[in-house]
Each structure stands twice: as C-alpha cells, then as structure tokens.
Design a protein around this nucleic acid. Structure first.
Length: 802
RNA sequence: GCCGGAAUGGCGGAAUUGGCAGACGCCCCGGACUUAAAAUCCGGUGAGGUUAACCCCUCGUGCCGGUUCAAGCCCGGCUUCCGGCACCA
C-alpha cells in the first residue's frame, strides 16, 4: 500500500481517541493490577508560536518507551499538561488587550491539537493547566504549608531587577547579569522579597542524589549548584572592643598565614563602628561606588582588585594574638559565608593579588610553591604555623586547627552552600497570588486554607506599576480585606509567585488531576509514585529539578507524598540545531516548524526522523534530505503488504535479531540504531523478494511505537486483532538470534589476512585446523614458527608467527 | 580559572565496551523503468597504490608518546570545540 498519511493518520487518531486506549488505570480500576509505568516529560509553556521541533524530540523518547511498555503489559501513565503562567503570555496580553486567560486558552488549544496531530499516546483525561484555579489552589496550599513550617520568610534585600520586565528575578533567572526572559541588563534594587528557605534542604537534596538514577553529568551539575563546602567559622577579635569579626574559611589550618582581613562593603560592622573609622568619608565613597555596580559587574571584575583599608580598626588573630589590618573590598560578597574573610595571600590567589596591590605582607605556611610569583594552593608541609608545623596532610591539619579553635572558643567547624534561598515573588499579574494578608496588628497572616483558591482578580490592564509594584495593587477589592485572625482591616499581599512554582509539583497532580479535597489522593500517589522515568532538557536540570525536588522532599516530610524523591530516573535529550548547525532561533531564520513536516511527510516520518537523526542525548542539526530518507523508509515498510510470501529461514532469523535489537535499544534510548536495524531488515526483505506474515506482524508491532499510524494500517491489512498500539510486543526466540555459522576474522601478527566461515561455537583446535588447511593463508604461515595463537570465540583468530 | 562531555568519510552518525573501523541514513556517481522528468527499484561510494580485470597491498578514528598478539576504545602528555559554574573565601 501507499502511505496515504493524510487519511491514515486522522483515521487512527480518532480510533485511539474513541477507544480511549491510552488512558491509565488508577488503583482499583481494571488494568491497575499490571505493573505501573509512570513516564513524565516536561510539560510545555504554551507559547503562541505553537510547538517547536525540540518539543517533538523531547516527547518522542518517552512516547516510544511508554508505547512499548504498554504493549509489554504495563499500566502506563503518560500525561501532558501546560505550564501556562508567565511573562510572554502576559506581555502578549498587554500588547493586544486580550485577557491572559483567553491567550492561554487559545495557546493550549493550539498545542493540544498539534500534540494530537503528531499522534502522541497521551492520557488526555489528565491534562493539567497551572493557571486554572483548581490547580493553583494547591500550589497556594503548598506555599501555606511551607509558611506554616517556617520555610517562608520575608526580607528586604538588594535584588536582581529587570527594568524592562519590571520584575524581581531570582539569581537563577538573571545569570550573567541578563534577564532570563528579555535579556536586558539587570540592575540591583532594594525590595521586600519573599524567600523559600531551600537552603534548609541543601543537604537532603545532595544526599538524595545517591538513590536516584540520573546520568553523572546531571548529578554533577546539581552538586555544583548546591555547592557544599566544608570548613570553619572563626571569630577574630576586634581590637579594643568586645566585638567578634566572624569569618568563614575552608582552610582554618592556614590561620598563621593571615596578614589582613577583608569585609564586604555592605558589612554591618562597618556602620556599627563608623565612629572609630578614621577614613569613614572615603569608605562611604567606596561603598557608593560598589552599590552602583551590579553583582554581575562585581563578579566580572576579577582582574583588578579594588579596596580600602579601614583606618582605626584592626582584628586580632585568635591563635597568635597578632594585630591584623582590616580592609573592605568588593571581591568579598555579603551573600556568601559571613560577608568577611581572613586573607591568606600566600595561598589564595585573590588575596595574593590584593596583598601585592596594597603592599601587605605575605607569609608562607604551606611549603611547595613560590609565593613571590603567585599564591600556592597545593598541598605541602605546614611551616611558620606553631602547633601545625610539620603536618603534611591537609585533612589532618584542618582537623587539628578546628580542634584548637573549639578549645579556645574561637570558632567551630561549619558548612556553607553556594545555593541561596529562593526569591519567590514577582510583581506581575499572570501568576499565582501569594496567599498572605498583612495585618497592622497581627503581622503576616496566612489566608485560611478553606478560602483557597485565592483567585486573581479580574482586570483589564495588566501592566506593572511604574514603581515596579504588582498590578494587583491597583485593585482595591482584592487588596482590602479583613484579617482572618483579628477581624480588623488588613491588606493582601499583591505579589505573585514565579513561574517555577506551578511546575514544582505538577507531576503529583497528574495522578489525580480533578481532586478537590487534596492535592492528590494518597492511594493514587502511593500507586503511581515515584515517576519512573523523567525526560527533559539539560537547561532544567538545576533550577526546575532542584526546586521540584525541594518541594517534593518538603511534602514528604509533612506526610503529603509517599516517596522522598520524585523522579527515579532522569534523562535528557540533545538540542535540534538548525540546518546551518546553529541553534534554532527566529532571528537566524533557521527554525523548522514540526507541523510543516507533518503536512508534507506525515507524523510518522517526523517522529521517526527526530529519533533517527543521531544520538538522542547529543545535539544534531536538522537535515531536510534525511527527513526524506525516513519518508522512504516508511514507504518501503508500507509496501510490504504486497510482498507476503513463504517463510525463509534466513529472513526469519534476521527478524528475530531485529526484534531483539529494537527491544533492547529502546530501553537504552538508542533509538537511532533501533530504527537502523529495522531499515536493514526491510532492505533484506526487498533483497529476498518476500516476507512471511508472522514476520511482518512482528515487524509491524516493533515499529509501532515509532510510526504508529502506518503500523495500525498495516496491522488492519494483515488481519491483526484489535489495535496495534495495544497488541502484545513481539517476542523473539533467543536461539534464532544467533547464527549457526560465523564469519571470523583471521589475523597473522595482528594483521587481517582474510575471513573464515566456521560453525558457531567451534573450538580453537578445530578452527586452527581449518586455517592451516586453507591455501589463502599459507603464504603468511609458510616457513614461519607459530609462537602464539589467540582465539576469540566466533569472532577472531590471531596467529603470531616468527 | 574550576567541573563535566565530546572529537570517527563530503554530512548525521554506528562499532557487541580491547577483537574485521565506517552499520543505517543523507549527499554524490552509474544502471533499470519512462517520450522525458520526478518518483521508484538495482548497484557503487574512506584515501592511496597495483592490476587488462577479478584479486591484492599500504595508510586511516584531533595531535604526540606508551601498554597489548590486537587500541576509535586503556594509560601519560597536549590541541580544539560544546555545556555548566565562576572573586564561593
């Protein structure tokens, strides 16, 4: 037959929908006795542009895996939803005057129709939309639970602020000093910020990595993100005061090498002792200078150190009693450690550069480098260090130093994280309202649980206020309320949550998307969790995944979910680049629209191509002519119904090998070689001229996860029972996957001198006899002494001669 | 700077984890079919040498060296590219 995909694909998509074959069975329902398989893909942000080929690649992997698992008898949950809060929708709404709700609905409808056109085997009865009140009710519920457990706090802070989006961004959203959404330069602004105390979970997030199946690089990225370091807090005395200047260091054993201290310009002790600081005017100037720089600028200026000595203030080394000068410099950040450091210029390059510039003494305490040239950060024998002299092992000397500090009451061992608490508010309309009420008498009061959801008020204008305040602040009916605690007049918080909120728990809601009593029925959570396999992009490995692991671990701690880790296994797809090998982007004009491919070649071809184009985890450029190659493959398959004939032993064996390869390769995400194996098999069928019906039946089912429409059509033509998508996965006979004859390589002294057909499993002596009797090998062996024979069964025979 | 990963034909990529490098697909070339083209089918296709032809030989997985009967794969030293983090004390 011809692959008349325009008719065929519609036909089978409506059959699947009518028969609801992709619906997952909840516990207690028929089908739930099968082993469960929960396959999760990152739900899309429904942009107006519709789906991108990247979406297709991201979803196709688990689409194929879960289709196969379904055919193998699993109860599969493969759901889809929409992460629909966020700036692009809101900006579009502001520009066009449409309500964000209407924009969202339109975009979701578009995505839904496109996903269906590609034929993804999704359970459409479980669609989740983060912007629906039924959903964000529970996002708010989780926030309140966190509030209740002290994981939410508010602080005034210098924040990353995007002047273009008029919104406060987390560190994660403003990397490299650019806004993640619009790429404008970030400025620093003082704001009231809501924080989630994610640092409280830093250790749990780190430890949990031991029990999950993520690729090493993903684990490593999360480990780096959390950035745990072990060291010590040391309290330096401040001369002529009772004050302690507290610092954090990873090398407390270098205390004897401390020649100055550095505080961050914002350090509070500077204000406290401003009266003692003789050059306070200059200090203020320096501080103003620093405040002008963004954090990005500060961290970029890693060449030239700036700073200033605090005249009149000095610190006392707790181990030596020595007087040490104190500086301020912007290479020390208020946001890490204690905002102050002990500087050991001999063994820290930054301190070294600073010391050189300001003419400060450099004392070597670890032997092994040339501290005149640069700081030495390596290992070596401790010198000039009192009781630490002679230590050569870093671990021992650190332990000994901490011991001494603790004995003196001058410090203690401690741990620091690079990860910071999560700035959790945005001054925007299209997000979940933060369910908190500010009462002049009671302070911050949570909205009572029974009043959830706290819905967004209806508005016509969504632009943020000029002072960067949330548009919700302009709705008096929303803002003014009664305090739930004292009944007095109070005001609602008007900030909304960041886009990461809704995506931090959506996979839980899929298990029970319509529940009105709790975020999901505990029975259903218990049945479905954890997610067995989660696939998505590398770009979400640190933020989204760490956030959602944090929320999940919190929910586990309060007994709301049954597992402490949400995702048992995580994989990531590689990017699809444009045909020019560059990242696809509108400005480059190299974007490929997946729907164009569906219209020209059909969904089966699109699906097959994105998985065939290369190693699934690596980036690969789009190639339109390779799409044609896949189209040819599908056509060649479609024509097999006209080639049915008698079984041929060689072909049957090939079929079994092919089925084995496809079965194994799908599970290890080697989709390209699985497809290649089926292509080879079809080439063999064309060579042989015919294929038997059983083999065609097996091939059809093996190809079905990749190209389900044409396979359904083929299945019907060859009289398959029911729908191919739920037919049993083809079995293979292990005995038929091995040949009874093998062609082995024959080498003399490691050089290939020919091949030899031998009965499979032949022993060394028998093979040697065959080689010795073959005239074609004689010239290489004549007159030589055999020193060594190496035989790798069914593969290779190497004769070493002299 | 630090942490990951990669480098294989004209191109995307295979290679049972130390055992015939280049599967499969694209591109290109030739043939069949066709009035013709497209489509389709069949064949060829790493480089060089040799041969009338079949054969055959040599070289070849970023670079230099090593281990081994045998290295794309292991070890040591580089180069380049990609991703992440980055004045983190």
């Amino acid at each position: 037959m011809k692959n008349d995909f325009r008719t065929i694909e519609k036909k089978w998509q409506s059959r699947w929908e009518a028969e609801q074959i992709f619906r997952a069975a909840d516990p207690g329902e028929p089908g739930s006795e099968k082993p469960k398989f929960y396959a999760l893909v990152e739900f899309p942000y429904p942009s107006g542009a519709g789906m991108h080929v990247g979406h297709i690649k991201a979803y196709s992997s688990l689409e194929v895996i879960s289709r196969k698992r379904r055919m193998q008898g699993y109860n599969v949950l493969f759901p889809m939803g929409f992460d629909a809060f966020g700036l692009p929708t809101e900006n579009y709404a502001i520009k066009t005057g449409m309500h964000p709700r209407a924009v969202t609905d339109k975009n979701i409808a578009k995505f839904t129709s496109q996903l269906k056109q590609v034929g993804f085997a999704l359970d459409w009865s479980r669609v989740v939309d983060t912007t629906e009140t039924d959903y964000y009710k529970w996002t708010q519920w989780i926030f309140l639970k966190m509030f209740e457990h002290g994981l939410v706090f508010r602080d005034t802070a210098l924040v990353n602020y995007c002047p273009n989006c008029k919104v406060v961004l987390s560190n994660e959203d403003s990397q490299g000093g650019k806004c993640d959404v619009c790429h404008s330069d970030i400025i620093q602004k003082s704001k009231d910020v809501w924080y989630l105390r994610i640092t409280e979970y830093a250790d749990k997030l780190l430890k949990g990595l031991d029990e999950v199946d993520y690729p090493g690089n993903i684990k490593q990225q999360q480990i780096n993100w959390i950035g745990r370091s072990e060291g010590a807090f040391v309290n330096f005395g401040l001369k002529d005061t009772e004050e302690k200047l507290r610092i954090y260091t990873t090398r407390p054993d270098t205390l004897f090498g401390v020649t100055f201290m550095v505080m961050a310009p914002e350090h509070p002790l500077i204000d406290k002792y401003s009266a003692r600081i003789a050059n306070m005017a200059a200090v203020e100037d320096y501080r103003r200078e620093c405040a002008k720089k963004t954090e990005f600028d500060r961290t970029q200026m890693n060449k030239d150190k700036t700073g200033l000595k605090l005249e009149g203030l000095s610190a006392i080394n707790p181990l030596t009693g020595r007087k040490i000068p104190v500086y301020i410099a912007d290479y020390v950040m208020m946001g890490y450690g204690t905002g102050a450091i002990m500087a050991v210029p001999a063994h820290d390059q930054r301190d070294w550069e600073f010391a050189k510039k300001f003419g400060i003494e450099i004392i070597e305490v670890i032997k092994g480098g040339d501290i005149e040239k640069e700081a030495y950060a390596g290992d070596g024998e401790m010198v000039n260090s009192g009781f630490l002299n002679g230590f050569t092992n870093k671990k021992d000397s650190i332990r000994r130093a901490i011991e001494e500090l603790e004995k003196l009451g001058a410090g203690e061992g401690g741990v620091q994280y690079k990860m910071k608490d999560w700035a959790f508010n945005r001054q925007r309309y299209w997000g979940e309202p933060i369910p908190i009420i500010h009462c002049p008498r009671c302070g911050m009061v949570p909205v009572p649980y029974e009043e959830l959801p706290l819905c967004l008020p209806e508005m016509k204008e969504f632009a943020p206020g000029t002072g960067g305040e949330s548009p919700l602040a302009r709705v008096p009916e929303f803002v003014n309320c009664k305090c739930p605690r004292c009944g007095g007049e109070a005001k609602r918080e008007t900030d909304t949550m960041p886009q990461w909120a809704g995506s931090s728990w959506y996979f839980l809601r899929y298990t029970d998307p319509h529940n009105d009593e709790c975020l999901a029925d505990p029975e259903k959570l218990k049945y479905w969790l954890p997610v067995d396999w989660y696939n998505g992009g590398m770009e979400h490995v640190t933020r989204h995944m760490i956030y959602s692991r944090f929320w999940h671990k919190f929910l586990y701690d309060i007994g709301a979910v049954p597992t402490d880790e949400p995702y048992a296994k995580r994989t990531a797809q590689g990017l699809i680049l444009g045909p020019d090998g560059e990242k696809m982007s509108k400005s480059r004009g190299n974007v490929v629209d997946p729907l164009d491919v569906v219209n020209e070649f059909g969904a089966d071809v699109l699906r097959t191509y994105v998985l065939f184009m290369g190693d699934y985890g690596s980036a690969a450029p789009w190639s339109q002519s390779s799409v044609r190659g896949c189209s040819r493959f599908i056509e060649r398959f479609a024509a097999l119904d006209g080639m049915i004939g008698k079984p041929q032993d060689k072909l049957v064996r090939s079929l079994h090998k092919t089925v084995k390869k496809v079965t194994e390769d799908i599970e290890s995400m080697k989709f390209n070689t699985a497809i290649a194996a089926m292509m080879s098999f079809i080439n063999e069928v064309y060579d042989a001229g015919s294929i038997d019906k059983d083999s065609l039946s097996a091939l059809t089912r093996a190809l079905c996860p990749f190209a389900p429409h044409i396979c359904e059509e083929m299945w019907e033509r060859i009289g398959g029972k029911g729908l191919c998508s739920v037919a049993p996965w083809p079995e293979y006979d292990e005995a038929l996957t091995v040949d009874d004859e093998k062609e082995i390589a024959v080498q003399v002294c490691g050089r290939l001198r020919g091949t030899l057909l031998i009965p499979a499993g032949s022993e060394e002596d028998a093979v040697w006899e065959m080689i010795a009797s073959k005239p074609e090998f004689a010239p290489f062996l004549e007159g030589k002494t055999v020193i060594k024979k190496i035989y790798v069964k069914d593969r290779l025979f190497n004769v070493v001669v002299k």
